[in-house]
Write a protein that binds this DNA or RNA. Sequence first.
RNA 1: GGGCGCGUAGCUCAAACGGAUAGAGCAUCGGAUUUCUAAUCCGGCGGUUGCAGGUUCGAUUCCUGCCGCGCCUACCA
Length: 679
Amino acid sequence: MYRHLEARLVEHFRDYLRRAYDLDFPKIVVELPPRVELGEYALPLAFELAKKLRKAPKKIAEEIVAGVGVIEGFTKLEVAGAGYINAYVDRAAMAKSLALDVHPEDKAPAGKILVEHSSINPNKAAHIGHLRNAILGDTFVRLLRFAQREVDVQNYIDNTGAQVADVVVGFQNLDRKSRAEIEALTKQTRFDYYCWDLYARVSQWYAADPTANTSKDRLKIRAQALHDIEHGGNETADLAELISVAVLRRHLETMDRLDIEYDFLPRESEILHLHFWDAAFTKLKESGALTYEDSGKNKGCWVMQRVGRTLLSAKEPGEASVKSASQTDAERVSQNEDNQKVIVRSNGTVGYVGKDIAYHMWKFGLLGKDFGYRKFYRYPNQHECWISAEHGEADHPHFGGVAEIYNVIDARQSEAQNTVIEALRALGHNDAADHYTHFSYEMVALTPRCAAELGYMLSDEDKTRAYIEVSGRKGFGVKADDLIDRLIASAKTEVDARHPEISDSQRVTISTQIAVGALRYFMLRFTKNSVIAFDFKEALSFEGETGPYAQYAAVRAANIFRKSGQNLQNFAKMHRAEDFSRYLNANKSHDSNEIWDLWLTASRTSNVVAQCIATTEPAHLAKHAFQLAQKFNSFYHHYPILQEADEGRKNFLLSTVAVVHRELTRVLGVMGIQVPEAM
RNA sequence: GGGCGCGUAGCUCAAACGGAUAGAGCAUCGGAUUUCUAAUCCGGCGGUUGCAGGUUCGAUUCCUGCCGCGCCUACCA
């Protein structure tokens, strides 16, 4: 609602500026005034105009306010501060549409969006770092869907890489398990935990031998395993398939605990076996994006020249050319080599980035090849998740060939992501490159205290650090399922104490919802590029700025309705005929302003969603949910609703509760957080 | 060395596009419950936004330099 009025306001001002000043203002900035007393919208445009018109901002603002005329939905414009133009909406009219929950038609841009997230190596249990990725990605998907966009969710599976090979090596050489034994293990609960430990043991096994020769031999075993797996059609590859699929299923189960689902799981094995790379390689060579090096340190490789880094040739103008003139040829050559990215190794094998280029050409429908598709996993809610296959089913949905993509991948991989984007440009696919977004975020690390709590020995240097990076190779980290278990147990203790009257299975449901709320909120409250230093105490908190705080506010709202005997879902709509203006305006008393502020905050959801999408930053939504809950809790405390004697005012207060409940539930839903029955 | 990011209250974090008095939570201190459940609310304390310049009517935000921290910089994935 808020967003549509804003659009109307901007349009009106743009028109006026064109008429009155003959000015084209493509971007009119609109802000939220610091307090509702100052209106619902603030435009600082007079400040900017001051330069052009060579007049005082305040004077210009007054001129505009006098000339701009009546705007539908607004009661007045006012000049405030040093030259702000504040716009005041018709509160009663806006409240009415909010109560009715009317949404003027939005024309969402056409074109499918593909969001890739999670992409956990299927060789060990998921940990907190993966949780951040999946929660950010899933929330972004929900944001896009809220904005009426069509979205496919993909989880890329690197099932032929070194990490899977390591676990296979572990089963074959350390634990010496037969295929049947491994198969039995995969059927046990949390097979991924077994792999977690095994992966750490193998990593030690490679390195921790005193005689260098043994270590070398072991790395040879690893290289052989990797080779066999990439090739396929042998015992090692079959084992890798068995293990990686079993771990993948575990990952899907873990993420489903947080209501995170995927539509399609493209795997590296199919990218290899369906020869995606060959198709891409041909195009890359034809376009000149890849060049063959016949000398130097990258001799025998196909490389990509990185752009954005100056190729220091004599042609460079300005200072750079002076600098390059003083360089020797040898320096220039070596610098150019440093700017090269090896895509195909001198032994003819393609590296990870090359496969990624092919995969991204497929995403945009530029490869001329497609995966086979097989049903893989049906969620309890019947949603079907598909997986890539060499020979797929005849009937399948169509994935790939999308208009826009978002890759939720941590910041350490920006370099690789940029290389893929550059490759698309080099192929002449600028439009695809422009619609390729690396949704970059920082890692989750552990505080030294947390690491110590987990029983890890820390060096003196580590103890002084703000955080310590998790490491799969060392088996150092907090496993996702463990964290979820602890959150549920902790919530259960509280729920048990508060609600002995309800059934245990219901208490488990509520505890789970609270745990998910706490976890998802925790991962969303930090902005993407701040490293999260994980700490159990903070993550297990249910008070203050947390998910349960917001859930609690919604539960309280529902409780009022339960006690009142009124219907929460229909109440606001049923009272649409009522005019709330006397409560909302009331001479702009403190009370009416405080309550209006609550309505106003509730109305801003679609605005915040748009902001989150534009900035690829879901943290704004978490902040918004918290603020709405905070304002509601304050309102809840100050206005005893069921005791209200004036029937009209009581209806108004109940409508307020109903609208806030609806919007808060909606916002939490976009974050993947449910509102429990009771708390 | 180069690239990217970060530095804001005791601690953990906000402040999209430069804007009105830099805000929350935690911690701490003090208060609120015969009421729609206190996982709550109200108040106090707490700031030279790393440092030094610059641009601007206006800078936490943009630019330059410096200091400190992290990540990336493989013919690994």
